[in-house]
Amino acid sequence: MYFTRPLARLIEEFQKFPGVGPKSAQRMAFHVLAQTPDSVRQLCEIILEAKEKVKHCSHCFHLSAMDPCEICTNERRDTQTICVVSEPRDLIALERTREYKGAYHVLTGLISPMEGKGPEDLSIRELIHRVGSENVIEVILAISPTVEGDATVLYLNHLLKPLPVKVTRIAFGLPVGGDLEYADDVTLSRALEGRREI
C-alpha cells in the first residue's frame, strides 16, 4: 500500500475523469492536499452547485443554469435559422467565432452503431418538432465530418427533406494552415466538391 486509504480513494476518483491517467490523478490529489481546508471546501461547493444548477435547456438542449437558456431567450437572435451541433462544446466553439446569430439545437451526441447509440438516444425528435412548429427557414448542420457525423447527417437529412425548410451543412475541406500534399482522399474530394469562385 503506497497511499493511505483516503488519499488512494481521491486518486481513484480523479482517475475516472476523462483523459486523466494515474500520474495526473496523483498530481491532482496532492494539489488538493496542499490547499487550505477553506479552498477545498469552496471547490467542493462549486462542483456541487454546477451539478445541481446546470441542466439541459428544454428547448435547444444546450447546458445552462436557466431554462430556457440564455441563447433561446435572447430576442436579438434570428430564430428562423437553427444550427444543429452534436455537443454543447461545439456550440461554444461556434459562439467564439461571433459570426453566427441564429438559434441552436444540441443533439447530445451522434449516431454511433458501434456503441449502440441510435437516433432515439439523441434529441432528434425534438429538433423535428421545432422545425415543424416554429417558423424555421434554414437548418444548418454543423456536425463533424467523421463516420458517426456523416451517419447522423444522412439520417437528419432523410427526416428533414420532406419539411419545407432549407437544409445545409457547414463546408469542409482543407484546414487553415493545412498542407495539400498531406490531405487524405476524402478531404481533398470534399474540398474539390465545395470549391467556390473567388
Partner: peptide
Amino acid sequence: PALRQDLIRLSYALY
C-alpha cells in the same frame, strides 16, 4: 467515400 453517402451501406460497413 461512397459509403459515407449512403446510410444503409455505411451501417453494413460498420457491422
